[in-house]
Simulated assay, not measured.
Amino acid sequence: MSTDEEAIETALAADVVAVVGCSSTPGKDAHEIPSYLREHGYEVVPVNPYADEIFGRQSYDSLAAVEESVDVVDVFRPSDEVAGIVEQAIDRDDVDVIWTQLGIEDDEAAERARSAGKLVVQDRCLKVEHGKRSG
């Protein structure tokens, strides 16, 4: 199994996904994809410093502020913000996979994450990958 495939399978088997850049506005990918994940049994932890609550849950200001355990970090922020998010994920013992959505990439940050023992998926949609595998 390739490293990408291992990362995807690990992410899809996870329970808790922290969505960095989760939107409180329906109709945006950063809202629709987490909604899809919730509908398919994932616990979604919203991370958005501009929202107090999303999906009836507390929204955290940053990944570092998340108090609960997280399996996957799903990033909906511009590529130039990925490095900082990856550093916060590396500092957490609970994160297994760092996932960046379509159009979001930072190869240097991804390599740092891999070196720290994290699995990484870049420039792919978690909803699409879930849909492909769940039929």
Rank of each mutant, 00 (worst) to 15 (best):
D71E: 06
D71C: 12
D71K: 07
D71L: 10
D71M: 11
D71G: 10
V72M: 06
V72S: 03
V73N: 03
V73P: 02
D74A: 10
D74N: 15
D74R: 06
D74Y: 14
D74S: 14
D74I: 09
V75W: 07
V75N: 03
F76P: 13
F76R: 09
R77N: 03
R77M: 08
R77I: 10
R77K: 13
P78S: 03
P78M: 02
P78G: 00
P78I: 01
P78R: 15
D80S: 05
D80F: 15
D80N: 14
E81H: 09
E81C: 01
V82H: 00
V82T: 02
A83T: 05
A83W: 00
G84L: 09
G84V: 13
I85Y: 04
I85T: 01
I85M: 06
I85Q: 01
V86Q: 03
V86E: 04
V86S: 05
V86C: 06
E87L: 07
E87N: 11
Q88Y: 00
A89Y: 09
A89T: 03
A89W: 11
A89V: 10
A89I: 11
A89G: 09
I90M: 06
I90A: 08
D91P: 08
D91C: 02
D91I: 06
R92G: 07
D93Q: 12
D93W: 01
D94W: 12
D94I: 12
D94G: 12
D94L: 11
V95W: 10
V95F: 13
D96T: 06
D96E: 15
D96S: 15
D96H: 10
D96W: 00
V97E: 04
V97D: 05
V97Q: 08
V97W: 06
I98D: 01
I98F: 08
I98M: 07
I98L: 13
I98Q: 00
I98K: 04
I98W: 07
W99F: 14
W99N: 08
W99S: 09
T100L: 10
T100Q: 08
T100E: 05
Q101R: 12
Q101G: 08
Q101T: 09
Q101A: 10
L102I: 15
L102Y: 12
L102P: 04
L102T: 12
L102D: 00
G103F: 13
G103E: 09
G103T: 09
I104Y: 00
I104S: 02
I104M: 06
E105V: 15
E105M: 15
D106T: 02
D106S: 12
D106W: 11
D106K: 01
D106I: 02
